[in-house]
Simulated scan of single mutants.
Amino acid sequence: MSQVNNDNTTNSILSNLNIANKNKDDKNSNELGQSAFLELMITQMNNQDPLSPQDNGDFIAQLAQFSSVEGLERLNNRFEEFSGSFMSNQALQASSLVGRQVTVPTEKTLLFDGGIVSGSVRLEESTNDMRINVYDEAGEQVSAIPLGSRPAGDLSFRWDGQNVEVNGELLDWIGGEEPLPGGEYRFEVLVTQDGKTEQLETALSANVNSVSMGDDGRLTLNLAGLGAVNIGDVKQFN
């Protein structure tokens, strides 16, 4: 498995994957090439029993079979070249993710000093009471953010440890006198519908520390505070 980090990411992953300068394996010396096959067939014709010669159809069948095998071999070679090119492009894309933020399904993430945590939830139905509770690493509630009535649909929010912006609008609600310090925080988004309170699934932002690429070309993001996350689980590239 290859890993991409901040140190010369592009050259590192290409070197580790050995894509850019990949050497082709030497052909097996026992492999039957086209010229060898034709020479063998001519020798077979010269040495066949004149009283019982091989039917022409048999020779044609041999040629057709060899042509099919040769065509499949060329197709496999082309596919390997295409696969190598695809993995090379994946490697270049992976290197650009390091240092950026992505949004993934999770309840907790890291807030860096002076940074912002962005998140999103989806309301299947409208609600007359929505709120976000924030807990620190010790499990103590450090913030309670009332959002009031909200229509059905996607809702995004940004939190800097003090103030909250919802769907691009800064709330009048003000947090503490000072922003909360950086650290790990857990977010609980609650809605009340028909007298019942339900917790919604949240997606939060996290920093990409490094990217790992498996031999099969699959990318795994190593996120700050969260660990390894499959790139297919990413909801948004920030």
Rank of each mutant, 00 (worst) to 15 (best):
N207S: 15
E201P: 02
Q34H: 02
L38V: 14
G161Q: 05
N8W: 10
L38D: 10
D172C: 05
K235Q: 10
S68N: 14
S118F: 08
G114L: 10
G175A: 12
Q44W: 01
A64W: 00
V121F: 03
R186F: 12
F157N: 07
E81S: 01
N47Y: 07
N167L: 14
V4Y: 03
G33S: 01
E124P: 07
D129Y: 10
R74Y: 09
A94D: 03
S29P: 03
L111M: 10
N128M: 13
R131M: 13
N128E: 13
E124T: 15
M130N: 07
N230D: 08
R186S: 10
Q162E: 12
L155I: 10
A36L: 08
N76A: 12
I19C: 06
I42G: 06
D129K: 13
L190P: 04
L111R: 04
G148L: 00
D172N: 14
E188C: 02
G225I: 15
I13C: 04
Q162N: 14
M87L: 09
N238A: 14
S29H: 03
N207G: 12
A61I: 00
T192N: 05
F37M: 05
L32D: 01
D113L: 09
L72R: 14
T220D: 02
G182R: 11
D7W: 00
Q236K: 15
P179Q: 11
N30C: 15
N16M: 01
V164T: 15
G225N: 09
T9C: 13
M41V: 15
D58W: 04
F37A: 06
S29K: 02
E31I: 04
L170N: 13
D129Q: 12
E165V: 08
Q141F: 06
Q101E: 11
S96H: 14
Q3Y: 03
L204S: 05
N89V: 03
T43C: 04
L110N: 01
L200D: 04
L190D: 13
R158H: 14
K235W: 06
E80Y: 08
R122F: 06
L155P: 01
R186L: 06
L190T: 08
A224K: 10
I145G: 00
T109R: 09
D215Q: 05
